[in-house]
Each structure stands twice: as C-alpha cells, then as structure tokens.
Nucleic acid binder design. Structure first.
Lengths: 212, 212
DNA sequence: AATCGGAAAAATTTTGAAATTTCCTTGTGA
DNA sequence: TCACAAGGAAATTTCAAAATTTTTCCGATT
C-alpha cells in the first residue's frame, strides 16, 4: 500500500482519534513505515506535525507515543475546551450576523438528524463517523464568528484531543448518551440564536460537564 | 560553529523572539544549515518543532517562514493571552497555597528590581534580556497553581508569540514604558495576593490593553 | 534475592544525496 | 502590452544508510 504524505497524516489522525492506535502506545516510525510503504523519516515528519495538534507526545531521543488517556487529562482537556468554547461562542454572538445564524442552524439540523437516527438504532457503528464529523462542524460553527483565528485553531486542536480522550477511555456511547445530548445541543443552539451569553455559557458547560 | 540540536532550537527561538529573524522572513533550512554546521534536515526538524510553538509558519511544500507581525495578529495574540492569563490566575488564586504566594512575591521582587533599574537608565539594551526572563517568570508563576498543564503549556506558547509580535512591530520600549508597567505588575501582584478575582482580571487586562 | 555494570540489541537522530515540487525567468503568441 | 507556456534554477521532500543514543538483557558482585 502506497499513499501520499497528506493521506498518511489523515489516516494516523483518524486512528489516533478513534483509539485504533491506543493511548500510551509507542509509535515507531520504523514499524509504521512498512504499513505506509514510505521511509521512516516521512513517518517521523508526520508524527512531528501530529504532536503539534497534541494527539501525539514527543520527547527528544525517546520518540513518539500516543497521548495517554487518563481521567486527569480528560478533565484538563474538558476544562480547556469549555473555556475556549464559551469564549468563542460569546464573541460569535457579539460579532456574528445572519450568515452565522443560518450556518449554525444548518449544522445543528444535520447533527440532530443523525443523532435522532442513532438514538433509535441498535448498532451505532455505521453512524459514528458521520456523527463525529457533524458534531465537530456544529461546535466549530458555533465559534466561527469569534473573529480570532488563534482561538479557532486552538479549539480545533483541543477538540481532537477531547475526542481522543473520550474514545480512549471507552466511555459509554450507548444510545442513552445520544438521547441526552440531543437536548444539550438544542439548548446551545437556542441560547446562541437568542444571543444570551450567560445561557450559552451554561448550556456549553452542561453539555460537557459529564467529562469533568 | 558546531552546536547541538537543543542549542539550535534555543538559538532560533531567541532570534525569533527578538526579531533578529524578522517577521515574514523566509527560513530556508539549506541556508541555516551552514550557520549551524549541521544538515538541512536537522534544521527542518527544529523548525517543525518551532512551528508547534507558533513562532514559525509552516506550509506543506512551501517551507517555513517567520510568523508575520501585523496589528491584527498582535491584537489576536493579546486577546488570547488575556483569556488564558485571567483564567490561570483565577484558578491559581483558588488553588494556590502559601508556596505559590511566596514564589509569586519572589518573582515580582526580582522583576520590579530590574524594572526600576531600567526606568532610570539611558541605554536599555543590557537589561532587556534579564527583564524578559523575569517578566516571563512572573507571569508564569502567577498561573502556576492553576492545576492545568494544558493551560500552562498554551500560555507559554502564546507568551512567546506575544513577545514576537511586540518586538516585531518595534513598539516603543522607552523608559516611560517601563515606568508604567511597574505599577501594573504591582497591581496584579496585590490583587493576586488578596485573592480578589475581579481585581486581578482587571489588572491583567489593564496591563495588556495597550496592545489591543 | 537484589543491585550494579557492561555488552548486545533496538530505536532514534543525523546525514548527504536523489527525487519531486515550486518559483522565477524568458520567450511566444494574441 | 499582456497573458500564458516552457525551461531552468532553487527550494522542499523523501530516501536509505551511518552515527548516536537509549533500552534490554545477562552475569558478576554484594
């Protein structure tokens, strides 16, 4: 199997975020090299870039390792995500126009559609990828009018780390979970459209507090 | 001149933060290679790590570039720094013990000593390096008891970017500048020791608002 | 049995050059 | 004159092997 470098990046990122590569696991360029059919240095390059996102730990002379999943770290990641999302949403409510409102509504519509399907399904696995993308898009849209590229970039990274911690710790993804987050996403949407900063802060907190 | 890799990293970081390498400037591994007496790939490695800190921009197939210094970006960096420092200080005031108080007092003492020297000096350059280290240590100590490794790490990165923007935009570092920040640092210290969250938020904002 | 030291093995980093891509210059045609 | 294409130069990425460092394993010593 021969793939281009950007695809190696995407593939590794996906495996990191779905715990196909398990937290704490050593990442040896010389082993992955064989799988991707490229040289060890190319893998090393990709891994160095993934460590910027925070999905991979890098220590000089000691190589790479999938970031560990611990309850402490999940707690920390969650707190940081709440901080960024609350601030991003606040600024978006301040700066966002109708374009933002419509994009947010659209993203929520797509997300809730999937979530309702999942809530009534037996096997979740076929939906998980779709849901994952839709959830990310909803939350990114929420903060998309904050006017701060730095905030958005950091949010993207911390969201990836959050997802990694979630699946890494094998948290309960039963359909009851999806049943409750439907309401939570709705609450975030309502508060955002109403430009109610405090209600939105609360809704974001309530949505994520189970991970604290 | 032959130096070890960690020293290449430190040297480049320093040059990036003092605008010895000017914002927007292209960073060609093949040129820096000669200066450091190592191979181009080693430089590339270091540059990839510096792009994690945010001091360097990296674009695939287009190489590296010193992050641009614009008033928009300085504004963005400043806002983000304020967000992180306010939250870090809030949590430190919540969690910090006497150890934190004493470390903060010590860091402030050292800092204000240098600042008083600078305020009364003609030539600032001999102090600038010392002041820079002391200022960083004061602010890092302020948030050091926040209990969030992620917050601390991100603060370190954003502080470096902040410094880069400051010197890159050749802002006025006259002695009048140092005269006013003496009071600002004092206000931050007083509020922190008094565990007055709102006063500390305000003091941090007032300290940095000139860069917005 | 536990610890320490050292040799062997394994992994990481560095290197220099080849392969690829981008960038810049120049020339052609409208 | 301008747009665009082709060619060459320069820069970036990739590679495989050498050099270095870390880790592992094993036996000697306490």
């Amino acid at each position: 199997m021969r793939v281009e470098t950007p695809e190696i990046f995407d593939d590794l990122q996906r495996k990191l975020m779905t715990a196909e590569l398990r937290p704490g696991e050593k990442l040896k360029p010389s082993e992955l090299q064989g799988f991707y059919g490229c040289s060890a240095n190319t893998v090393r390059d990709v891994l160095l870039r993934l460590s910027k996102v925070g999905l991979v730990e890098f220590e000089m002379q000691r190589g790479f390792r999938v970031r560990a999943a611990t309850s402490e770290r999940r707690h920390d990641v969650t707190r940081f995500r709440i901080l960024l999302e609350q601030e991003g949403a606040r600024l978006s409510m301040l700066n966002g126009g109708v374009g933002w409102e419509s994009r947010l509504t659209a993203a929520h519509h797509k997300l809730s559609h999937i979530e309702k399907q999942i809530a009534g399904a037996d096997d979740l696995s076929p939906y998980l990828g779709l849901w994952s993308d839709a959830e990310l898009e909803f939350h990114e849209t929420l903060i998309s009018s904050c006017g701060s590229p730095i905030l958005r970039e950091n949010y993207g990274d911390i969201y990836a780390q959050f997802r990694q911690q979630m699946v890494g710790l094998e948290r309960d993804f039963g359909s009851s979970y999806f049943h409750s987050i439907i309401d939570e996403h709705q609450a975030v949407l309502d508060a955002a459209l109403a430009r109610d900063v405090e209600a939105c802060r609360t809704a974001i907190y309530d949505h994520l507090k189970r991970n604290l």
